[in-house]
């Protein structure tokens, strides 16, 4: 009987802890949410690549589109220049953050530079994003590159 009473106390203690203040919000928002995700994911037949797309979102799909496009164009030694994230945020009001060069390399195996990167002069492709989509333009001369850099000078590259 005493063991049974202690069992009831155990159950009540757990209910009290997980129903108390912030723990309640956390338990619903995190473990229970993950459990619901598990129920869906365990029935899904998605492969690793689809899981990556779903998890990493628009930054990953944009990076992979750039990779596909460069493969179509048979680009050799491409070094890709992206617009600064602050430009997407402050000028286009878009919720897009392109990955930093290290993460872009992890996603695609391609070299990326930012407007303030030490090797920016090596950039030979420029990715322009607008509400209509993503456009990949070749950079043909140092002058063209300088014009691009001047155009975005007031936007700080941020993570």
């Amino acid at each position: 009987m005493r063991v049974f009473i202690l069992t009831i106390i155990s159950v009540l203690t757990i209910a009290l802890v997980l129903g108390l203040g912030y723990y309640r919000a956390w338990f619903v928002d995190k473990p229970l949410y993950y459990w619901r995700a598990f129920v869906k994911e365990s029935r899904s037949s998605a492969g690793p690549e689809q899981i990556r797309k779903a998890r990493y979102g628009i930054a990953y799909t944009t990076s992979m589109k750039v990779k596909e496009e460069l493969a179509k164009r048979n680009a050799t030694n491409p070094v890709i220049l992206f617009e600064p994230n602050s430009y997407y945020r402050d000028s286009l009001h878009m919720d897009l953050r392109v990955p930093e060069p290290a993460v872009f390399y992890y996603y695609t195996g391609l070299r990326e530079v930012w407007m303030n990167s030490p090797g920016v002069e090596k950039a030979n492709y420029f990715v322009r994003v607008n509400k209509a989509g993503v456009k990949l333009e070749p950079i043909r001369s140092p002058r063209q590159l300088q014009e691009i850099l001047d155009r975005y000078r007031k936007f700080m590259p941020i993570l």
């Binding site: 063991v3 069992t7 155990s10 757990i14 473990p31 598990f38 365990s42």
Partner: peptide
């Protein structure tokens, strides 16, 4: 013991979703 089971179950739940 019987009264350990509720804790074991809730901890197993937390572990399971983390492992998944």
């Amino acid at each position: 013991r019987l009264y350990e089971l509720p804790f074991i179950l809730i901890l197993s739940f937390l572990v399971f979703v983390s492992v998944w």
